[in-house]
Design a binder for these strands. Structure first.
Length: 642
RNA sequence: GCCCUGAUAGCUCAGUUGGCAGAGCGCAUCCUUGGUAAGGAUGAGGUCACCAGUUCAAUCCUGGUUCAGGGCUCCA
């Protein structure tokens, strides 16, 4: 065996070095001191590791610096360690548990009697940043599992001992420790060379969290924070948080007067006239789109006897989420408000005997649904107790799956594009525990894949994430400020047809089971409305805006004319208001801008004599004076449902 | 459901170390009739979330309840 090894860099170039050279030394000697200084961690043959590790064989090597996106995740994990050491220094007796990096930062869960106060968090932030200044090296060592158990038992870290024992039970022989200063934790790594590489740590908040995420376990105190390489990046991040607070749908819901909540009906919205317009516009839009796409709309009862839920399987574990209704004659709570439409659609399907010629059958329903969500999980319009879904169930033969999925994805694509949401597709396939044999899953997954591929859609595969009764496709949208929301779904269901004994008569005159496709594009109207409010920051396109245009007169003598224009536009179906309050023109224009109305129509003597209006778009663009009929033509274009 | 934090005018918020409650916006009335983001004056509007307790006195202190917000669990 030679004492020289070959290192292959990402650009394909190769360098020789002595066996046993550390990555840090190799980088400094063979690549350059600049990179050596900036380097944070390395990827060796696809595995991430510290720069202090030695190169023992021919490898492919990639070095990460603060410029690589992966590095933020690294320093946030580093920061979690630093925060944990700071907390234990400031609050002796606090036990440590785990602290991973998250998408935007990190958290660390501590066990202690008292929760952290805002002042505590300030102290933690100050101490953590002081530890960065001290620039302590992260030192990696390996010890045996027995030594590890002893180490953490001596420290009195019960939670750490529990994790170490779990890891040992999985067959690990050694444990990796990372030490900075005098604080030690076990960790797979890698870590940056030293704490000084983390630019700045910001503590964001604290909250309760269950040990190992199980609500039967003790409550821990979770500290949330984030880390960046410099102050500027942190400032940008904090600005982005501020931006998303500004467009919070709960805030805009008040400012734009769209909806209210009342303690007498927690989790159920009151929709104002403007909010109702928004809601019904979405509802009618979806109604029109589904009708044009071969769906039929039906309505089913809001309340059902438990018999239905026993058949569907919801009367067991799901029962606690249902609002039960007392039957005063029997004295029993054996009715429930429906929490979803599916079972009632299956009943509806069963009213008639179906031929293969009827399929696919597509039932669309926008009925009101109720789910008794846990009080602590309610929030704005995104999680409510009363809502409606843009729900539909498609009953088809297995051979029709691909066509139906294609048809659905095209519709979904149209809807998301119309509102400017981009989306990512995820296909979830057979889980361990599942219904049916492998050939059934081959056909089901194959049908979904074929549809996605024929549309040329990229998708992520999530093996094992499907429901036990069928695979599914999820659609996650990204809004205008880059936040992701899980919205659309296409779920195949092989179980419901069995439970409800659904059949159709085939060409062969024999009875067959159809497949059920559960699908939604908005998810729920409430949640979709919330997402759109935040996505548009309340400035809706004209077709969706509750008020499409506001008339503002220069002086009162134009009021009669303004009323006439308002009435003629309303007669054509447009949502137009005339602000008759005794305010100045400027104040009314300002108000219309704050209310984010797409068009403000200024009317003075010139407009009266010329049968015109002077529209100004939201944002300030002056469209100059035009005939009322020309403005109508403009509205006709922009206010049409996409 | 669990942990934490809150709740004062329609909205945004200030305030009282326990002694009859404040601003701006909005609303009403009047004056002003102004050409693209706030013209002016006057006025109305409160069970300080709710229920108990402590106190001569509670919006303020204590306990409970409800709701909201940030998380956890769960989820459209």
């Amino acid at each position: 065996m030679s004492d020289i090894i070959t290192v292959t860099l990402p650009d394909g170039s190769q360098k020789q070095t002595a066996r046993g050279t550390t990555i840090a030394d190799f980088v400094r000697e063979s690549i350059g001191p600049g990179l050596a200084k900036a380097a944070l961690f390395a990827r060796v043959n696809g595995q991430d590791m510290d720069l202090a590790r030695k190169l023992d064989e021919d490898v492919k090597l990639q070095i990460f610096t603060p410029k690589s996106p992966e590095s933020l995740e690294l320093i946030r994990h580093d920061a979690a360690h630093v925060v944990a050491s700071a907390v234990q220094k400031l609050f002796p007796g606090t036990q440590v548990t785990i602290g991973p990096a998250t998408e935007e930062g990190f958290y660390y869960d501590f066990f202690r009697e008292k929760p952290f106060t805002p002042e505590d968090l300030e102290k933690i932030e100050a101490e953590a940043n002081a530890e960065l200044k001290r620039d302590m090296a992260f030192v990696r060592t390996e010890i045996s599992m027995d030594e590890a158990v002893r180490l953490f038992e001596e420290k009195g870290e019960k939670f750490k001992v529990e994790i170490v024992k779990d890891i040992a039970a999985k067959g690990a022989k050694t444990l990796t420790l990372y030490t900075h200063g005098d604080w030690v934790d076990f960790c797979l790594g890698p870590h940056a060379p030293s704490t000084g590489k983390i630019g700045i740590i910001k503590i964001l908040s604290s909250s309760g969290a269950y040990w190992r995420g199980d609500h039967r376990n003790p409550m821990l105190q979770r500290v949330y924070g984030t880390a960046f390489f410099d102050k500027k990046q942190l400032a940008e991040y904090l600005t982005r948080i501020e931006e998303s607070k500004k467009r919070d749908h709960r805030k805009l819901g008040k400012e734009l007067d769209l909806f209210h909540f009342h303690p007498y009906s927690p989790g159920s919205a009151f929709w104002t006239p403007k909010g109702t317009t928004l809601y019904t516009t979405l509802s009618n839009w979806m109604r029109q789109l589904t009708q044009n796409d071969g769906y039929v709309e039906i309505k089913t009862p809001l309340m059902f006897n438990k018999g239905l839920w026993e058949t569907s399987g919801h009367w067991g574990k799901y029962k606690e989420n249902m609002f039960l209704v007392l039957d005063s004659e029997s004295g029993e709570h054996d009715f429930s408000l429906k929490p979803m439409n599916c079972p009632s659609h299956h009943l509806f399907y069963g009213f008639k005997k179906h031929s293969y010629r009827d399929l696919p059958l597509r039932y669309h329903t926008q009925d009101v649904l109720h789910r008794n969500e846990a009080a602590g999980s309610l929030g704005g319009l995104t999680r409510v107790r009363q809502f409606a879904q843009d729900d539909a169930h498609i009953y088809c033969t297995e051979a029709q799956i691909t066509d139906e999925v294609r048809r659905f994805v095209k519709l979904l694509d149209h809807v998301y594009k119309a509102v400017g949401l981009t989306y990512a597709v995820k296909l979830s396939t057979r889980p361990e525990q599942r219904l049916g044999d492998d050939s059934l899953w081959d056909r089901a997954e194959g049908g979904l894949k074929a549809a996605l591929e024929s549309l040329g859609l990229e998708y992520e595969l999530a093996p094992g994430d499907g429901a036990f009764y069928g695979p599914k496709i999820d659609f996650a949208v990204s809004d205008s400020i880059g936040r992701r929301w899980q919205l659309g779904t296409m779920q195949l269901d092989y179980l419901a047809p069995e439970r409800f004994d659904l059949t159709y008569v085939g060409e062969d005159n024999a009875e067959h089971r159809p497949v059920v496709l559960h699908r939604a594009i908005f998810g729920s109207f409430e949640r979709f409305t919330a997402i759109l409010i935040e996505h548009f920051a309340g400035a809706f396109p004209a077709w969706l805006a509750p008020i499409q245009a506001v008339l503002v007169t220069v002086a009162d003598r134009q009021n009669d004319y303004a009323r006439k224009v308002r009435d003629s536009l309303r007669a054509k179906g447009y949502r137009v208001e005339f602000d008759e309050r005794g305010l100045s023109m400027n104040a009314k224009i300002r108000e219309a801008q704050l209310q984010k109305v797409p068009f403000t129509l200024v009317v003075g003597d010139n407009e009266v004599s010329g049968e015109g209006v002077s529209p100004r778009r939201y944002g300030g663009e002056d469209l100059k004076t035009m005939k009322v009929t020309d403005f109508e033509a403009l509205l006709a274009k922009e206010a049409a449902l996409p």
